[in-house]
Design a protein around this nucleic acid. Structure first.
Length: 512
RNA sequence: GCGGGAGUAGCUUAAUGGUAAAGCCCCUGCCUUCCAAGCAGGUGACGAGGGUUCGAUUCCCUUCUCCCGCUCCA
């Protein structure tokens, strides 16, 4: 039986050491989580699989890792300084909160005219212009909204409005010893910008031709208004992102290819069921400022229902164009040309010289961006199983793909009060861990049945048990099984007898 | 940020204005020849701060965290 609720997963994560609340002994810090001994292994394994699929097994990808602290100009010209800010306002009468610009948009025209005139703006100023002007003088704004009788869209009555204020979703931090208004940097809200600002560096150092991509795995930070739902909405998150650069015109085909490829990756390598995945096409009017088309891959989480695992966006030439100097002389798409801010700080033109046409072009970008933490959660939800055994008892077993399993092998002595069995088990543990690529544990703190169940809950695919037969002391003096052990498989609980010297190979063949 | 609900051991629950109890888990020892056995022992909790009180886990206030609903959501 799969997990009935997310709480069952949360409970298992805490109990077995996958995931803990961040800063827990000081009461926690909302929107942060710490990965425990099993969690870090699972997460590392997921990232390893992703990197292998998207970098090593392709001919057109490079990896990078860029700084988390980001020059504010990067986020200014990317559009985040403006677009990643939500202006908010509350109605004291009914405790409703609105996005300030959306509230203005929903007013009758004469209301907006009155506000505009009160602020000395042209009568036909649009709601974005108004919002920006009013946010600069919140106290005057509050008075003007009252005077103009701005109504609440929920009840249609004039509201008792608070001062409008901005809520920026980017974290700022002080850089250097002098605390003035200019000496700050942003913690990056997405890893993507690191790939864009290094576009030339990668191109120049690798001699890549279009199409090619840059991959990065790393932390991003978003000051979410309301972190919720366990790993789902967090303030510190890890992303696995690709920026795939193509000639304009190839972008739509390549976009579809990445969507199909990544759905297959979640299914084949992470082990998610295809029927629990679905695609979500973003409506045109809800697209981000940089996107021409965005398709999300959703997973059917317990309690939450379908929610986003990965977003695959066609970012057009927005980013490379926005970060380039001398934009007026670049061949940009209409959206980027008209909406991107004039760049007065970049010293680079992020273009590509196309030898076929002998022209500089600004590549289009297709961006598959997946959440590592959400991937971990999906893998756990998919793998969780409460199984009723033949004897009527239940066991909790994590049916993780062996490649994802935090522990690959547990070596267990059938009896811990037999020195020779214990010594042999410890020797086998050493033999397996010497290979260096599989987490191996030894445990003798309970009876054999309980040891198996513990490993089931951790998702360990194989248990190796050392018994009297291993020592050549089988029942009735049977020595035929000397130097063999029992390998017990997690999902079926079936056992197989394997020679010790074949064991590393046997296990490796089965963990992928 | 608003409204509602909840915070007692790793987990699930109990009681109490006066030494906080139990089961499971965990640890140690004995026992145990393959799926959470048994016996004996042991560690471990009132989210934090303040107030009322002789005395607060209990009553009050504040705060933090979590859950539900709004709101928000690249």
């Amino acid at each position: 039986m799969p997990a009935k609720s997310l709480d069952e997963i949360v409970s298992l994560c805490k109990r077995r050491g996958f995931i803990f609340p961040g800063s827990e002994i000081y009461g926690g810090l909302q929107g942060t989580f710490d990965y425990g001994p099993l969690g870090v292994e699972l997460k590392n394994n997921l990232k390893k699989l992703w990197w292998r699929h998207n970098v090593y097994e392709r001919d057109d990808m490079e990896g990078i890792e860029t700084a988390l602290l980001t020059n504010r100009y990067v986020l200014r010209y990317s559009g985040h300084e403006k677009e990643f800010t939500d202006p908010l306002i509350d109605n004291r009468n009914n405790k409703k909160r609105y996005r300030f610009d959306h509230l203005l948009r929903d007013q009758k025209p004469d209301v907006l005219v009155n506000i505009a005139l009160a602020f000395g703006l042209p009568a036909d100023a649009d709601e974005e212009t108004l919002a920006i002007a009013l946010l600069k003088e919140p106290a005057r704004a509050e008075a003007a909204l009252k005077a103009a009788k701005v109504v609440d869209p929920t009840d249609g009555k004039p509201g008792d409005w608070t001062e409008p204020r901005t809520f920026n979703l980017m974290f700022k931090t002080q850089v250097g010893p002098v605390a003035d208004d200019e000496s700050f940097a942003y913690l990056r809200p997405e890893t993507a910008q690191g790939m864009f600002v290094n576009f030339k560096n990668v191109l120049d150092s690798t001699n890549r031709k279009l199409p090619f991509g840059i991959a990065q795995i790393g932390k991003s930070f978003r000051n979410e208004i309301t972190p919720r739902n366990f790993l789902f909405r967090v303030r510190e998150l890890e992303q696995m992102e690709i920026e795939y650069f193509v000639k304009p015109g190839e972008d739509e085909r390549v976009h579809d290819e990445w969507i199909a490829d990544h759905v297959d990756w979640w299914v084949n390598e992470v082990g998610l069921s295809r029927e629990k995945l679905k695609l979500h096409e973003h409506p045109k009017d809800k697209l981000s400022h940089y996107s021409k088309r965005t398709v999300d891959i959703l997973y059917d989480f317990p309690t939450l229902g379908f929610d986003e695992l990965e977003g695959i966006a066609n970012r057009t030439d927005w980013d490379l164009g926005s970060h380039s100097r001398d934009q007026a002389n670049l061949p940009l798409s209409d959206n980027t040309r008209t909406r991107a801010m004039k760049n007065e700080h970049s010293v680079e033109k992020l273009t590509y010289f196309d030898h076929e046409t002998n022209k500089h072009i600004v590549p289009f970008v297709v961006e598959p961006a997946a959440g590592v933490d959400r991937g971990v959660l999906a893998a756990l939800c998919e793998a969780y199983d409460e199984e009723t055994l033949e004897n009527g008892e239940t066991r909790v077993v994590l049916r993780l793909k062996p490649a994802l399993a935090p522990i690959k092998v547990a070596v267990l002595p059938l009896k811990k009060n037999n020195a020779e069995i214990v010594a042999t088990a410890k020797r086998i543990k050493g033999l397996l861990q010497a290979k260096g690529d599989m987490r191996t544990v030894y445990d003798d703190t309970a009876g054999i049945g309980k040891l198996y169940r513990r490993q089931d809950e951790a998702g360990t695919p194989f248990c190796v048990t050392v018994d009297f037969d291993t020592l050549g002391q089988g029942k009735g003096g049977d020595t035929s099984l000397k130097d063999t052990v029992t390998v017990r498989e997690r999902d079926s609980m079936a056992q197989e007898r394997v020679a010790i010297d074949r064991l590393p190979e046997y296990i490796r063949d089965r963990i992928g």
